[in-house]
Computed example of a mutant assay.
Amino acid sequence: MLTLGQAAKEVGKSKTAIANAIKEGRLSANRLENGQYQIDPAELFRVYQSINRQEESKGVQSETPINKASLQGETDLLRELVAQIKDERDDLRRRLDVSETARQRETEAREKDSAELRRLTLLLTHQPEPTAKKSGLYQKLFGRDKTKV
């Protein structure tokens, strides 16, 4: 069994951090009559990693060989894929612009044909095209519409 101070040294934490873990219920410990804690090492290492294990894991990480050639090959492959995707995106944008331009031209042509068809229909049915409002006597005398006065 470990005291609070011994436990703190084993895991590289402060006494306060260990005491807080006990109070929060993350770490179980027995309290003696004199107020000191007794902490089971298995319980301590369940919650915290020992300093020796931390150093071992750091050493293992630094000793892991890195194959830079394969990483470079993967990086180059990913760059090629990104470039290919960008080319496809640009091609799709060009196609979209072309189709949008064609759609606008068709819409304008339909509107023009519709106006021409309306004009021809009016001519065939002998209906004069609507003209501006005829001016009345007041308009001729004073040069303005009396409703706007």
Rank of each mutant, 00 (worst) to 15 (best):
L2D: 05
L4T: 07
L4C: 00
G5T: 12
Q6H: 01
V11M: 04
G12N: 02
G12P: 01
K13H: 03
K13W: 02
T16S: 13
A17N: 07
N20H: 11
A21W: 04
A21G: 07
K23D: 00
K23L: 09
E24V: 07
E24Y: 08
R26L: 10
R26Y: 15
L27M: 07
A29F: 04
A29Q: 02
A29N: 04
N30C: 11
N34C: 07
Y37E: 01
Y37S: 03
Q38C: 11
I39A: 06
D40W: 02
D40Y: 02
E43Y: 05
E43Q: 08
R46S: 05
R46L: 07
V47K: 08
V47F: 05
Q49M: 12
Q49R: 11
I51C: 00
N52V: 05
E55L: 15
E56P: 06
S57L: 15
G59D: 00
T64P: 00
N67M: 06
Q72C: 07
Q72A: 12
T75Q: 12
T75L: 14
L77A: 15
E80S: 08
V82G: 07
V82D: 11
Q84K: 15
I85Q: 15
K86R: 15
K86A: 14
E88D: 10
D90C: 02
D91Y: 10
D91K: 11
L92N: 08
L92Y: 03
R94P: 00
R94K: 10
L96P: 04
L96M: 12
L96K: 14
S99L: 13
S99K: 11
E100A: 10
T101Y: 04
Q104I: 12
R105W: 06
E106R: 14
T107M: 14
E108D: 15
R110H: 10
R110K: 12
E111Y: 04
K112S: 13
K112N: 13
D113L: 14
A115L: 13
A115C: 00
E116Q: 08
L117A: 14
L117E: 09
T121S: 07
L123N: 14
L124C: 15
H126T: 09
H126W: 12
E129D: 05
P130K: 14
T131V: 09
T131Y: 05
T131Q: 05
A132Q: 09
K133S: 05
K134I: 06
K134R: 11
L137S: 01
L137V: 00
Y138R: 02
Y138I: 03
Y138C: 03
Q139V: 06
L141A: 10
F142V: 04
G143H: 04
G143N: 05
R144I: 06
D145P: 03
K148D: 01
K148E: 08
